Simulated scan of single mutants.
Amino acid sequence: MLIVLPPSETKADGGDGAPLDLDSLSFPELNPRRRAIADALLALDDTTMRGALGISPKMDAEIAANRELWHAPTMPAVRRYTGVLYDALDADTLDATTLSRLAVGSALFGIVRATDPIPRYRLSAGSKIPDPGPSKAPTMKARWGGDITAALKGVTPAEGPVVDLRSGAYLTLGPLPGAITVRVESLREDGTRKVVSHFNKHYKGILARALAQAGHDLGPGTGADEIADVAGTTGLTVEITGRTSLTLVV
C-alpha cells in the first residue's frame, strides 16, 4: 500500500540532515524535472519570485529559504510538513515499516516518500514560474507533464493499492487512474451536506495513520471496501461512493 498525502504550505525550520541531494530521494526518474523546476525557481529575482509564489514582502523569509535550497539542512518529508493533517498523523509515533507506506505530493519534488530528506522551501501547485522571454508563465501542471502519474504507475504491485489523499491542484499535477480517492463531507443539521475544507485535513490525517498501520493486511487486490473497513475502525462514518472512491461523513 502507498498512501499519498498532500503537502502543507507551513513547514518546519531547520533539520539535522545533509543538504539536498536529489539522488537520495525516492522516484529518481523525477530528478531531471525536479532539477529543472528548482533551477527555474532560483533563476528568478526576488520581486519576480514573490509574485510567482503569491506572497507579500512580509513573507520574504520564504524567498530566503528557496535561495538556500541546495545548502540548507534537511529532515524527513513527513516531519518537514506541518499543520492539521500532520498533527493528526503524528508521524513521530509511527515505526519505520508504517512510515514506508506514506508519501507526499509536492510541487517542487513531485512525490517523495515520508522519510526522504528535504529542505524547507516554498512552492505551491498553483504557482507559475515564468521563463525568460515574453511567453506566458507555465503552470506547475504543465511543467510536470505526465511525470508524476508515470512515477505512481511504477509503484510495485507488491505494495498493494495507492490511496490518493491529495486534493485540489496537487491532485491535478499527477492523477493516478485507479487510485482510491477520499472525499470529506460534513452533515448539516437539516440533513444536507457540504464539503469540508480546512478540517478535511484532520480527518485525512486520522485515516492515513490508520491505513498505514494496517498496511500489512492491505496488499494487492485491496479495494475500496477494505479501505472503508479500516476507516470505520477510527470511528469515522464511511460511504463507498464508487469502485475506487470513498466519502468520509463527519
Score class of each variant (00 low, 15 high):
residue 3 I to Q: 00
residue 5 L to W: 00
residue 12 A to C: 02
residue 13 D to K: 07
residue 15 G to M: 05
residue 17 G to W: 04
residue 21 D to M: 02
residue 24 S to H: 06
residue 27 F to P: 04
residue 28 P to L: 13
residue 29 E to Y: 03
residue 29 E to K: 00
residue 30 L to E: 09
residue 31 N to A: 14
residue 36 A to D: 15
residue 38 A to T: 08
residue 40 A to D: 15
residue 46 D to N: 08
residue 49 M to H: 08
residue 50 R to F: 04
residue 51 G to I: 03
residue 51 G to E: 15
residue 56 S to C: 12
residue 58 K to D: 14
residue 61 A to E: 02
residue 61 A to S: 12
residue 68 E to A: 15
residue 69 L to V: 15
residue 72 A to I: 05
residue 73 P to V: 10
residue 73 P to I: 09
residue 74 T to A: 11
residue 75 M to V: 11
residue 79 R to Q: 13
residue 79 R to L: 14
residue 82 T to K: 03
residue 83 G to F: 06
residue 83 G to E: 03
residue 85 L to M: 14
residue 93 T to V: 09
residue 95 D to S: 03
residue 98 T to V: 14
residue 104 V to G: 15
residue 104 V to C: 06
residue 108 L to A: 04
residue 109 F to H: 00
residue 109 F to E: 00
residue 112 V to Y: 08
residue 118 I to P: 14
residue 120 R to P: 15
residue 123 L to Y: 11
residue 123 L to C: 13
residue 127 S to F: 09
residue 129 I to V: 14
residue 129 I to G: 07
residue 132 P to H: 10
residue 133 G to Q: 05
residue 137 A to W: 05
residue 141 K to N: 10
residue 142 A to N: 06
residue 142 A to K: 12
residue 144 W to D: 05
residue 145 G to H: 02
residue 146 G to Y: 06
residue 146 G to M: 01
residue 148 I to C: 11
residue 149 T to R: 14
residue 150 A to H: 03
residue 150 A to S: 10
residue 151 A to L: 05
residue 152 L to N: 00
residue 153 K to F: 14
residue 157 P to L: 01
residue 157 P to C: 12
residue 158 A to P: 10
residue 160 G to N: 02
residue 161 P to Y: 08
residue 161 P to N: 03
residue 164 D to P: 07
residue 165 L to E: 06
residue 165 L to K: 02
residue 169 A to Y: 07
residue 170 Y to S: 01
residue 170 Y to T: 01
residue 172 T to M: 08
residue 172 T to Q: 08
residue 173 L to C: 08
residue 175 P to F: 05
residue 177 P to I: 00
residue 177 P to V: 13
residue 183 R to S: 14
residue 186 S to N: 15
residue 186 S to K: 10
residue 187 L to R: 12
residue 189 E to P: 00
residue 193 R to F: 03
residue 196 V to Y: 05
residue 196 V to S: 09
residue 199 F to C: 02
residue 202 H to G: 04
residue 205 G to Y: 08
residue 208 A to V: 00
residue 212 A to H: 00
residue 213 Q to A: 04
residue 214 A to R: 04
residue 216 H to R: 14
residue 219 G to E: 01
residue 219 G to Q: 02
residue 222 T to N: 08
residue 224 A to K: 15
residue 224 A to R: 00
residue 227 I to S: 12
residue 235 G to H: 01
residue 236 L to Y: 02
residue 236 L to M: 15
residue 236 L to F: 13
residue 240 I to D: 08
residue 240 I to V: 15
residue 240 I to G: 06
residue 242 G to H: 10
residue 246 L to D: 02
residue 247 T to A: 03
